[in-house]
Design a protein around this nucleic acid. Sequence first.
DNA 1: GTGGTCTAGACCACT
DNA 2: GTGGTCTAGACCACA
Lengths: 125, 125, 125, 125
Amino acid sequence: MGLKLSIVNTSDTPIYRQLYDEISYQIIRGELTGGFCLPPIRQLASDLGISVISIKRAWDDLERDGLISTMVGRGCFVADLSIVERDALRKKLALEQLEKSSRIYRELGMSADEIVSLVRENYRE
Amino acid sequence: MGLKLSIVNTSDTPIYRQLYDEISYQIIRGELTGGFCLPPIRQLASDLGISVISIKRAWDDLERDGLISTMVGRGCFVADLSIVERDALRKKLALEQLEKSSRIYRELGMSADEIVSLVRENYRE
Amino acid sequence: MGLKLSIVNTSDTPIYRQLYDEISYQIIRGELTGGFCLPPIRQLASDLGISVISIKRAWDDLERDGLISTMVGRGCFVADLSIVERDALRKKLALEQLEKSSRIYRELGMSADEIVSLVRENYRE
Amino acid sequence: MGLKLSIVNTSDTPIYRQLYDEISYQIIRGELTGGFCLPPIRQLASDLGISVISIKRAWDDLERDGLISTMVGRGCFVADLSIVERDALRKKLALEQLEKSSRIYRELGMSADEIVSLVRENYRE
DNA sequence: GTGGTCTAGACCACT
DNA sequence: GTGGTCTAGACCACA
């Protein structure tokens, strides 16, 4: 099974960011495991109908964060992460997101209880 | 008491967006009430050290969303919103934010309980 | 019975234009007849909650077009118009409006028949 | 064939409005079809001898109304509208215009028949 | 006095 | 290359 990626051109989040996010989420969820070989960027670019530059940028960022590693001439491979590392990453991303939202909830004058009930409501669907 | 606004020039969110957010939050929290006359855009521009255009853009967006109304030659005034309208707006913004976060939480494979405990933890601080 | 005027501050048509229009329409419909004495602009300004300047501007325009005449120290009076004059004015305004709309209808690629049926539909309500 | 636009600087309708109108009419008439790539705003600005800002403002409005979509770094593209959508839009704009006119016709005390005959007269030319 | 629009030119991020 | 944002300064119409 190959890599699954879906890109939204009209989104306001840059393409390279969408790529970064999708790959990192798949790694965190364990769908992409250590040693998996990512497809050649040129092929991926034509498959997704996007620019090579966007992919390169995403791959660079992923490598910077230790999620993949590039072996010149051989390709890009998903890094080996322990469950502990993956979990730490997961919690870090969740907290980042939560803090961003919380700032807004506070601006709206919402209490923790209100938010919790919104969360529960939202998840039931 | 005049209007309180703080702008961060180095932020990656555009100035006009920061202005929009601050004003709309103040309206939702009831700190800015119907009929309040916003300061002249040119005065505000020089006070904040920003361009008139950024303010104009924010005011345009606020007007399009029914939060203020501008009268040429007279000034810009906060719209009269009923408590019901304000609450609806508040809930709408909260839900928008929640859905954005939820998408990410789901990508990270988190359950509702996990999120709720994160929220509680986050709010205790 | 006094003069009836309703002004919408938030409208995008200038106040002086709203005044001009309402007065001229009343004259055309024969509700304001020759010799009728308009209220003092200062009183009207405070009654309507608008600026004297806006009224002055409207009165000036009306006088320019021969619809009222100002007698210094005595007030402003509606001009004596014959039925023929009133009808000519009515047709002129209608045609002006029609030409403005027609330009848009043509841009939208509508035929005369389409427009006529829209008119009939619109008037039935 | 490139995009055809004509701007009148001396008009009292803002440049960004003229742009919005011309583009939207061309989309409604089917002259601009889905996927068409609008010229770069900076090139268009220099071609038309106007400022980038005016174009940007028009493009923003068009995007807000779902008529085009812009992709940073790639350009602005005409949205894919079904014939049904285009027709609905066309009718909506026509009705808006008609209601504006009708208000005035009523103020002038005109019957539906009078208006219809005016329309027919006006279209014969 | 107010807001509405526009220009010319700049810097930045994305592809 | 593309669009996104911003500044500084100008001219106009409205109240």
